[in-house]
Write a protein that binds this DNA or RNA. Sequence first.
DNA 1: TTGTACGCGTTATCAA
DNA 2: TTGATAACGCGTACAA
Lengths: 340, 340
Amino acid sequence: MITIKEIAKQLNMSTTTVSNVIHGKTKEVSPATIKIVEDYLKQVDYVPNINARNLAQNESKIIGVALKARADKYENLLMDPFVSELIGGIEESIRNAGYFMMLYISSDIDKIMRQVSTWNVDGLLLFGMLGDDGIRVSQKYKKPIVCIDTYTIEGIKHFVNVGLDDEKGCFDMVNYMIELGHKKIAFLSDNLNGVDYARFSGYKRALKENGLSFSEDMFFKIRPRKEDIDESLDEICERAKDFDAIMCVSDLYAVQVMCALKDKGVNVPEDISIAGFDDTLLGQLHRPALTTVHQSVKEKGVLAATTLLDRIGGKKTPKQISLPTTLVIRDTVKARKKEK
Amino acid sequence: MITIKEIAKQLNMSTTTVSNVIHGKTKEVSPATIKIVEDYLKQVDYVPNINARNLAQNESKIIGVALKARADKYENLLMDPFVSELIGGIEESIRNAGYFMMLYISSDIDKIMRQVSTWNVDGLLLFGMLGDDGIRVSQKYKKPIVCIDTYTIEGIKHFVNVGLDDEKGCFDMVNYMIELGHKKIAFLSDNLNGVDYARFSGYKRALKENGLSFSEDMFFKIRPRKEDIDESLDEICERAKDFDAIMCVSDLYAVQVMCALKDKGVNVPEDISIAGFDDTLLGQLHRPALTTVHQSVKEKGVLAATTLLDRIGGKKTPKQISLPTTLVIRDTVKARKKEK
DNA sequence: TTGTACGCGTTATCAA
DNA sequence: TTGATAACGCGTACAA
């Protein structure tokens, strides 16, 4: 690890000159010196020490990406295909902009904030915030923040948010199901907060606008933890007998339910129709191929990252950015045939 | 962002004393002063500046995780379920050990190495190294390195490696297929380097030990890029007509092939048997459920990270660590019925 | 055109 | 038991 000081010593010049050449401030350096320094730099393969630079300039070139994990859901958040695709898009954008990504995964918002302060990150990307998390973050951290898929009022007020038109996506799909003659349509998710609540709202609006009523027994609450999932799926399959169709809050759940149904001899879409949400690989590679609501997850990550970078660069950006959804009609939702 | 200097000023004492209290070097500090400092620390929510600390101590508490991307395969490596599960395990271990993870994704090994030097990372985790990458890295970087799934001779010589018994895993599966009466068994992958070559070797050994011969036309080379995949799968389905079974190098390919076959009216396992490798969610959630070779991807990540941390801590570790595989018998490989 | 000197926040050494 | 000061490597204002 050679330093500027060392280079200056070897070349018999001052650190300022070396530093100026490195940063292209060559207006005030003679061409001859430039050449000498540049040649030497290549020779010794100079790499600046980021810590010293950050300390001197009070910036870090780091984007913090904080994922608030839900303790009840996954062993590790990165194993969720949605999350990894999102991070993929984020990572790529950050890298291309010459920044670094520092990933924090924790269910403890205070821990996350300590890390963020410690590293003096230039900007923050937040995913999975709920309740008053937003307030607590914005009290401690004064640099640009962009949230992803945040629905809490505090989030909306305080931050820039990149989201999706979840409500409409679900509305469109349920509407489509009803057009095909389905009457008893269940909604399946593991909770009714944030994004899931928005989708649930779209589901209910579609029912209402088509003159169908909603009752509590039409909500299928799945328990996704490893130790619960089998029992939970059994119960859902049992309840599903009375239904024409199930609107699932994610592709993953849709595929899991279809597998459980098939194992019990129930056929999709002949006996029951199933729709998913997200349009991940899982649904694309299932047979029958999953009818689902498409969203571009990678694009969401890219958009969130570039928006944050714009803000760091002092540009104005919209505060609420909402990506569109589209229906992907494949083979798991078909016209209702028989009476139940 | 309050600093030690500021705290010392407020409390009318020296930075040394404050620093000592913070680091628990309380042998030489009077109880009274300790109390004062500790109380004040809580009040102001002091967070250390990592850059200054790293500069002073010449360490970073960062583990660099470098993924060498194959330009021909994915838009973004993180979208590969295998990779994200691996990273999940790594991230968790690093975090639990009080370190930070810095992720580099690039197809350019020199770029990766520059980043690693810049950040002065305490250790390096390498995935996807091929050819002479290993030599180039070890020339520039002198701190502990652990590779994952590296098979090159240079890699083996220079580094600690955490891998899998790929050869045996594939051997066992092909052996099992042959026991069930299959004779013409194809091997499918996108290349024959590194890990894939090891699996290919296991496949060939199983053929040989069972008195079956291998010929070039038994290797199905899939082209996984978006623009090629459909054509590639068409070709593979066509060639598959002459075969009893296909040993696929990954679950992803196995599932893709099964979908393509099904779309053409070919039934698995009735018409042809298919086996995968890795045991990912994709195979578990397919129907018929995929018969595959299990490896614990997350555990591999955990083991690589803890091995690296051990080395950083000065502990001795084995140089070659190989995880076992197990056969997961599900529904896509069945006894051969009809003559072809 | 080039060089000197200082500050960034922390830790470590050594003196008081 | 406490404090003053140097050092880490870089960038830069200002002096030469």
